[in-house]
Design a protein around this nucleic acid. Structure first.
Length: 412
RNA sequence: GGCCCUAUCGUCUAUCGGUUAGGACACAAGCUUUUCAAGCUUGGAAGCCGGGUUCGACUCCCGGUAGGGUCACCA
C-alpha cells in the first residue's frame, strides 16, 4: 500500500499505432488510475534503423486522441545511451556479461540480419530455474538454460531491447508490467537481468492476444490496415467506443453491463479477471458499441458525427419514384412538402403538422411518414438518414428549403 | 520441433459440482414508423473427443485432438 503504483506503455516507433497497442496502453492506464498510480510512456527507439520520428508522433497523438494521459516526462531510449553503457560496463566488470567474438559460420550464433557485428555483448546466463507470479496466468516457471548466453548489446553504445527495458523500468520505478502475451518468453531473460543489476522485480501481467478472424495474431503484414488504430479512427469510431470495446476483449466485469465510459472502467476494472485465452476482434460489435456511445453524446456532438457519416453536405441525387411514402399520392406529397417549406421558413412546428396529417390520413398504414419521409428524402436523397429535424439542424434553414424546393419542382 | 498457453452458440462471454447452460453482437421473422446511428416481440444457435474422480460433471484430474504464442546483433 505504501508503494506508489507505476505502469508504463513503451511503444516502439516502428509503425503506426496498432490495435493491440491500444489495449496494452488502456490496461496499463486503467490499472494505474484505479490505484492512484502513474501511467508513464517511453519511446523504445534503440533500433535506429527502424525507428521513425513520424511514428513516434503518431503514437503520442493517438494516445492523446484516446484520452490516455501520461504522467511524467517522456523518455527516449535513444537519449539514454550513456546510462545503458554504465550498466553494461558494470555487468562486464562483474563478470556477468562479456564481449563475445562471433564467427560467421558458428551454428550457435544467431542468424544474420542487417549489419553483422564481429563482437557483441552477451549476458552470462546463470542457467537457473526462474519462477514468477503473473496476475493473469498465475505461477509461471521457466528453465533459462534454453536461453543460452543471450546478446544484450551490439556494443557499449548500442544496447538491445532486454537491457534497455530492464534498466528503464528500474530507473523509472515501474511496479507493474502489463503487456501482451507475446512478451511472456521475454520475462525470464528480463528477470535474470534484473537480478544481475540488482533491480527489484516488478509484478507481471501478460494479456491474451487479440486475434484476427482466422484466430492468428493480428499483424500488419497478414491483416493489413485493419490492425491500425487510424483505420478505425477514419471510419468514424469514437475513442470512447474503441476503448470500451478493447476493454471487453478478454475481460468482463462479471455483470451484464457492456457500455462503459473511461471513468467507469477505471472503477470497475479488475485485472485478475482477465482471461488467458486470446479473443477475436469483431468489428460488428465495435460498430454497435460505437452507436451506443454516440447516443451518449450531446445533440451538437451527435449532429457533427451524423453529418460526417451521411455526407449530407453533398448535393442530393433524387429519384422521383422514391419521394412518396408508401401509397401516398404524388399530389398529396407535393402538398405536404410545400406546407413543410412554409413551416420551416416561419420556424413553425413541423412535428405538429406531421402528427395532424398522420391522424387525417385515410389509411391505417400511413402515419406521420407521409410528411416526414418525403421531407427526409428530399433533404438527402438517401433512403437511410437521420430524421428530418436533425437534418434541418445540420443543413441550416436556407439550404434545407433550397433542397426541398428543388424536389417540389421535380414533382410538378 | 522445444518451451508455454488456450478450448461454452458464428463472435465476445456468464457459470467457479446440481441451471430449461444466461447475456451481448451478428443473423432470421414480425411489429412500430420522428423510418435512422430508435424501440419492441419472437426464433434458430454452444459445453472438441476419450478416460477417470463423484450420488452428480461444462465445471476437478489425466490423455488425445485442435488452435495459438514464442524461440533475432527487432521490440
Amino acid at each position: 500500500m505504501s508503494q506508489k503504483i507505476i505502469t508504463r506503455f513503451p511503444p516502439s516507433p516502428t509503425g503506426p499505432m496498432h490495435i493491440g497497442n491500444v489495449r496494452t496502453a488502456l490496461f496499463n492506464y486503467l490499472y494505474a488510475k484505479q490505484n492512484s498510480g502513474d501511467f508513464i510512456v517511453r519511446v523504445e527507439d534503440t533500433d535506429k534503423a527502424r525507428s521513425k520520428k513520424e511514428h513516434e508522433e503518431g503514437m503520442l497523438e493517438s494516445l492523446e486522441w484516446l484520452g490516455l494521459k501520461r504522467n511524467g516526462e517522456l523518455w527516449h531510449q535513444s537519449e539514454r545511451t550513456e546510462i545503458y553503457k554504465k550498466y553494461l560496463q558494470k555487468l562486464i566488470d562483474l563478470g556477468k556479461a562479456y564481449i563475445s567474438t562471433e564467427t560467421e559460420g558458428d551454428p550457435t550464433s544467431p542468424r544474420l540480419r542487417g549489419t553483422w557485428n564481429r563482437e557483441v555483448i552477451r549476458f552470462k546466463n546463470p542457467n537457473k530455474q526462474v519462477t514468477f507470479e503473473d496476475l493473469v496466468r498465475g505461477t509461471v516457471g521457466f528453465d533459462t538454460r534454453e536461453l543460452g548466453d543471450f546478446i544484450i548489446a551490439k556494443n557499449l553504445e548500442e544496447p538491445l531491447y532486454h537491457l534497455a527495458v530492464v534498466v528503464d523500468d528500474f530507473e523509472s520505478g515501474v511496479t507493474h508490467v502489463i503487456r501482451g502475451e507475446d512478451h511472456i518468453s521475454n520475462t525470464p531473460r528480463q528477470i535474470l537481468l534484473q537480478e544481475a543489476i540488482g533491480a527489484p522485480r516488478p509484478v507481471y501481467a501478460h494479456l491474451p492476444l487479440i486475434l484476427a478472424s482466422d484466430r492468428s495474431k493480428l499483424s500488419k503484414r497478414k491483416h493489413g490496415e485493419s490492425v491500425s488504430l487510424g483505420y478505425y479512427r477514419e471510419k468514424g469510431y469514437l475513442p470512447q467506443a474503441i476503448l470500451n470495446y478493447m476493454a471487453l476483449l478478454g475481460w468482463n466485469p462479471g455483470t451484464d453491463q457492456e457500455i462503459f465510459t473511461l471513468d467507469e472502467l477505471i472503477k470497475v476494472f479488475n485485472i485478475s479477471k482477465i482471461h488467458k485465452g486470446g479473443a477475436i476482434f469483431d468489428e460488428k460489435k465495435l460498430e454497435w458499441m460505437n452507436k451506443q456511445h454516440i447516443n451518449l453524446l450531446s445533440p451538437e456532438e451527435k449532429q457533427k458525427i451524423i453529418a460526417r457519416e451521411f455526407d449530407v453536405t453533398s448535393v442530393p441525387v433524387i429519384d422521383k419514384t422514391k419521394v412518396c411514402w408508401k401509397d401516398v399520392s404524388q399530389s398529396e406529397t407535393l402538398k405536404h412538402l410545400e406546407r413543410a417549406v412554409e413551416i420551416i421558413k416561419n420556424n413553425g412546428d413541423l412535428m405538429a403538422y406531421a402528427i395532424e396529417m398522420g391522424k387525417a390520413s385515410p389509411s391505417q398504414s400511413r402515419g406521420r411518414g407521409n410528411v416526414l419521409w418525403p421531407l427526409r428524402y428530399a433533404l438527402t436523397g438517401l433512403e437511410k438518414s437521420p430524421d428530418p429535424f436533425t437534418l434541418i439542424a445540420i443543413l441550416g434553414v436556407e439550404e434545407s428549403i433550397k433542397r426541398v424546393e428543388k424536389v417540389i419542382e421535380l414533382l410538378k
